[in-house]
Design a protein around this nucleic acid. Structure first.
Length: 485
RNA sequence: GCGGAGUUAGUCUAGCUCGGUAGGACGUCAGCUUCCCAAGCUGAAGGUCACGGGUUCAAAUCCCGUACUCCGCACCA
């Protein structure tokens, strides 16, 4: 289904909606998750933990969202995460200073240069606004990080623009106290903040957004010594280096040198196996190998995991080989030791990062799951049962003759263990349709026969078929059906 | 940030040209019906018409500004 339909579902059924919407000064790029959205998000993250964190024995931490200035001096964000911009005094158009100067008079000034250099170049070459020929104001730095003032002195600090910096900064302590051994994955789920110029399309371009990041620390001399490579050597990954994505096994990817080493291949594979289980159609996905110009400032090799949606290819995960960029910068700045022992070898670990956009992933799952079932005149959210915000609807066919009481009794029995929704009111068909829309895979209905033989009907969302089951079997049937794979 | 279009109840929308203080559909809730796939009947709740200002006796309607949403451009670890 298309973006508009997903948006409508999100607003009507409580998946997500604009932040502060009752106030006129609400800023763009901030969205809230409602009850169904939170439930979906929690289950998505549980799947992520199972398929990546536990599978690989990673450590998960939860760091501060506000971090000190030094962190971002070391990480390079204060210098590199900013663009020099110039604004036309007449028509208010904004341009990148470096790009505009290069375009008009072929002078290359690095974007990290002092701001005076841009102003001088503009004055000396008499550069005017390309749109209206007006004069430019002085060059300003637009940094995408949100600055915050700490305490009464308003000391300078920043909201993190990516969650991984706390993983790097915490690495020495975690490695020591958690008895770390390379390769070691450290993961974090949390919010990151970027002051986007033009946030767009609800969850797809936010100023405050969720990331699930994994940083795998490794010995750079042992990138092909990956014991568990055999687990995934036949896993098919789709890689795009030129025009079209090509499906190949991890073994083939290594042999053809499209993926540089077994270490990177292993993580691309387990990431693929994770997304397979979210219900997204992986034949519509690709790992796009980024060229030098597209890569982030810290990346040596980069693959973006992208999925084709109705609004185009969408980047869900950035996989970057960051080498020792982060650990060596933090070591230098903080004067702490970041080297660790790998058997008898002292190494400064390299880092491979799997940086997942949670909000974009959830949107994509919704888009792939939402179906317009014209035959039955309904909209169905065919989520995997283990991702469904509500597992089961508990319904009374009618309220009288003690059916309501019997239904309440069953609900009480299972509501702590499953995400169950109790509903007595309205026509039964209407209640089924409502459950279809929030993706509840099952509904059980109490009818007159229930009172005679302790059985209920179990209705399946996708097929709309019903079967009669004993109430005593309900727990085990549901447990099996909504269990994670 | 620039340009264009838009904003009326949870959702879709009528009314705007030609000013006279909001109407429908769906959805929601309650009751009747007691019924296995959005049925029917009765009733109800829900809108200071995005926000702020102006013109006017009177503004959803005309004018100005702002915000947000969508599209295009630019930007995008």
């Amino acid at each position: 289904m298309d973006y508009e339909s997903v948006m409508k579902l999100a607003l009507e059924r409580g998946f997500y909606f604009p932040s502060c919407e009752v106030y006129a000064d609400a800023q763009a790029g901030f969205w809230e998750y409602g009850p169904t959205g939170v439930s979906l998000k929690n289950k998505f993250l549980e799947l992520w933990r199972r398929e990546l964190i536990r599978r690989d024995g990673m450590l998960e931490i939860d760091g501060s969202q506000i971090m000190s200035k030094s962190v971002f001096e070391a990480s390079g964000h204060l210098g590199n995460f900013a663009d020099p911009i110039i604004k036309c005094k007449k028509c208010n158009s904004t341009f990148r200073a470096d790009k505009t100067i290069a375009e008009i008079c072929q002078i290359e000034i690095p974007e990290s240069a002092e701001l005076d250099e841009f102003d001088n170049a503009i004055n000396e070459n008499n550069i005017k606004c390309p749109r209206c020929k007006g004069d430019f104001d002085k060059t300003k730095n637009f940094n995408m990080m949100f600055k915050v003032g700490i305490g009464p002195e308003e000391e300078e600090a920043y909201l993190r623009p990516e969650t991984c910096q706390s993983i790097f900064v915490d690495f020495p302590r975690l490695f020591k106290t958690m008895r770390g051994k390379l390769p070691l994955g450290i993961a974090q789920v949390g919010k990151s903040f970027r002051n986007e110029i033009a946030p767009r399309q609800s969850l797809l371009r936010l100023r405050e957004f969720y990331q699930a990041e994994i940083e795998v620390f490794c010995n750079p001399n042992k990138l092909d010594e990956m014991d568990n490579f055999s687990e995934i050597e036949n896993t098919i990954i789709r890689i795009q280096t030129d025009e079209e994505p090509v499906a190949m096994t991890c073994k083939e990817a290594i042999e053809s040198k499209i993926v540089p080493n077994k270490f990177v291949a292993y993580y691309l594979a387990i990431l693929t196996e994770f997304y397979e289980k979210t219900g997204i159609d992986l034949t519509k996905s690709r790992f796009r190998k980024l060229g030098d110009k597209e890569k982030a400032f810290y990346a040596e090799v980069a693959f973006d995991f992208e999925v084709e949606t109705t609004i185009g290819w969408l980047e869900l995960v950035a996989c970057n080989y960051r080498s020792d960029y982060d650990l060596s910068s933090h070591a230098k700045k903080s004067k702490e030791k970041f080297e660790v022992m790998d058997n008898d070898e002292k190494v400064l670990p390299h880092v491979f990062e799997i940086s997942m956009g949670i909000d974009r992933s959830l949107y994509t799952i919704l888009e792939y799951s939402l179906k317009d079932d014209k035959e039955n005149d309904r909209v169905v959210l065919s989520l995997k049962p283990y991702l469904a915000p509500t597992h089961v609807g508990i319904l009374s066919l009618v309220k009288k003759d003690g059916l309501k009481e019997k239904t309440d009794e069953i609900y009480l029995k299972i509501k702590r263990k499953f995400d169950a929704f109790l509903d007595h009111s309205g026509a039964i068909g209407r209640r089924y349709r409502r459950l279809d829309e929030i993706g509840a895979p099952f509904a059980i209905t109490v009818d007159h026969q229930t009172l005679e033989d302790e059985t209920v009907t179990l209705r399946r969302r996708d097929s709309m078929e019903q079967e009669r089951i004993k109430i005593s079997e309900l727990d085990s049937i549901l447990s099996d059906s909504v269990a994670f794979p």
